[in-house]
């Protein structure tokens, strides 16, 4: 809208900012009790569009607030570098459909190494391009992490994640709260 100067009356916001707001306001009552004993480790992928390209760390800081709230601060391991200075996963800009898989995977090796260095069991990727690419490089380079949507973990923490909504969970979390 900015690029083409298209006038609009509405405000544009990400769901991540709303999750954070709802948790702060107490409307979304979630905590990390479910993960106390299990201790599943999580990291996040900062999508370029909501990190660097948004011009600030606001959204990705909200992302960390939400993730730490639902998985436990002690179970969150950040990548280095991160947030506005993150490495792109290599799936964006159309790369997943550009027809150069060999180059795309070579590009993604940095992201793969970053994720492996965190030792996390789960990568929360709040962008479909990132999600697809991080899954693909995980399979390609032999990583054993799982890539999950943020809403999956929110509902897991809320105790309302149905058995049909667990496609992306590993065996350690597949039965939690059922």
């Amino acid at each position: 809208m900015r690029k083409f100067n298209i006038p609009h009356k509405f405000e544009l916001i990400t769901i991540i900012e709303l999750y954070a707001q709802w948790i702060r306001e107490g409307k979304l009552k979630v905590n990390s009790d479910w993960n106390k004993e299990i201790g599943a480790k999580f990291t996040v992928q900062d999508p370029c569009n909501i990190a660097r390209k948004s011009g600030s760390n606001k959204i990705v800081d909200d992302l960390r607030f939400v993730v730490k709230t639902v998985v436990g601060e002690e179970n969150f391991i950040d990548t280095v570098p991160n947030r506005i200075n993150n490495f792109c996963c290599g799936g964006g800009g159309g790369a997943l459909q550009a027809g150069f898989p060999e180059q795309r995977r070579a590009y993604g090796k940095i992201k793969y190494d970053q994720i492996m260095a965190t030792g996390a069991d789960y990568v929360i990727a709040p962008c479909h391009n990132c999600h697809g690419q991080i899954e693909d490089i995980g399979h390609h380079y032999g990583g054993n992490y799982h890539v999950v949507h943020l809403w999956t973990i929110l509902c897991l923490a809320m105790g309302c994640l149905a058995d049909t909504e667990r496609t992306y969970l590993g065996p350690d979390l597949a039965e939690v709260g059922l």
Binding site: M1, K3, F4, I6, P7, H8, K9, F10, E11, L12, I13, T14, I15, L18, P47, P126, C127, H128
Partner: peptide, 26 residues
């Protein structure tokens, strides 16, 4: 194409749905 997609979306939200907030879910 990019502009067309955004324009159609903006017109629909502003003129038909009249919602003050658009939420990107990813």
């Amino acid at each position: 194409g990019w502009k067309y997609i955004i324009e159609e979306f903006v017109l629909h939200v502003d003129n038909n749905l009249k919602s003050p907030l658009v939420v990107n879910t990813e």
